[in-house]
Amino acid sequence: MRLQVKKWNLSNHSDYEKQCGQYCYKIVKTLLNFLKFLKNENDNFNSIIEGKDRQIAELQAKLTSLYSNEHKPNEFDSLRKLITESNTAVINELRSQFLDFHNNGEIKPPYDSLKRCQNESTEYNTKVNESKGGETYIESPYPNSCVPFGNSSKQYKINVAGAGSFHVLCDAHTAGPGWITILRRADGKVDFDRDWNAYRNGFGSLNGDFFIGLEKLHYITKSQPYELYVHLKQLNGQTIHARYGEFAISNEKEKYNLIKLDLYSGTAGDYLKTSKHTGFSTKNKVNIQYAKKFNGGWWFNDYTKSNLNGKYVADNNLVGMFWGDLKILNLVKMLIRPKV
């Protein structure tokens, strides 16, 4: 079928205006509006791509800095989170916009650009993973604290950079949600008069009395700022507590020194402060005489006024656990939680 095209008579200008107004106005206006719409959408797309390129450049610069300097593990985690969120947001936005074009305007979405964004996301995430200690870091499905478990007081598995994955006892009833139990004394069935290796690795059972272990405790408190809560229950049922807004210990080379212990509040008395900046001692390492005298490992020095790893006793005449002048304790818990 041949199209019948009406010939325009341009000999008279007024006739031309009349013919154009009669036949072209609606078509031309619609076409111009559509072209204007396409231009705006194209500008928006280019703006998004430019923003994406800037984000990639900034992340690449930060990644280079991380390669050349030592950073805490949580900085790598923050970078990974930033990369993932930014790429996901851009990809989703582009996909939504251009699928709309495809459905409504018969315009092919730029799948190549989307694919490039996805590839860059994978590439940079891989580089960040491999930059941890020169070794490949595999993203763990477990959180690094008890905070995500909310009001649940059960055993859960967490993953802490440097220490790997392990089970902990979360406590949401004693002082609110999100606490990791690092020490529990409830029945005296576990012997706490142990050597250095035992305290380094931890001992006991999460179902009863236990100590989490100095090595795990070091990496946990190194990963992010932590606070400490000491819960003490006396034979008469009365409970008291000591809370410290800052708590951390150093590594084994530094004898798990109590390097942070500040911002005390509570009803039990500030009897741990005398152990600040003191290394941990057991019956075979560091201040051996004190560990033997008090029957357990602790941050002992000449001025120590507490020891929650001593014998579980019910007699004031025996040397057992103590917190200041309080020597008979029915229940002891030490809890830590990321500082808000």
Rank of each mutant, 00 (worst) to 15 (best):
Y137F: 04
G150V: 00
I240N: 07
L206Y: 00
P177M: 02
Y226H: 09
E254I: 08
K327T: 15
D270R: 01
F280M: 09
Y219G: 02
K108P: 08
C20T: 11
V313Y: 05
T174L: 04
C170F: 00
L79A: 04
R194H: 07
W196I: 01
S14N: 12
N159Q: 06
L318H: 10
Q22C: 08
D77T: 09
D209W: 00
I91A: 00
T239P: 01
Y25I: 11
F45A: 08
E70M: 15
E215N: 12
K189R: 10
D193W: 10
A61S: 09
E135H: 05
D262A: 09
F101P: 07
S265W: 01
M321Q: 12
L308E: 07
K233I: 15
F192T: 07
K273Y: 09
K189H: 03
K26T: 14
E93N: 12
L272V: 05
L263Y: 11
K255T: 13
G176D: 07
K283T: 04
N12H: 09
L183Q: 15
N330G: 10
A186K: 12
S131P: 03
I138S: 13
N236G: 02
N33M: 12
Y16D: 05
V340Q: 10
E50T: 12
K333I: 01
E58T: 10
Y271R: 08
H231F: 13
D15R: 10
Q22Y: 15
N92P: 03
R337G: 03
Y142F: 01
T174E: 06
L308Q: 07
K293I: 07
K39N: 10
H231M: 08
K6Q: 11
N74E: 11
M334F: 08
N129Q: 10
K36R: 14
E139K: 07
F37R: 13
T181G: 02
G133Y: 04
N46P: 03
N287V: 06
E75L: 08
F76D: 03
Y229N: 04
G21M: 06
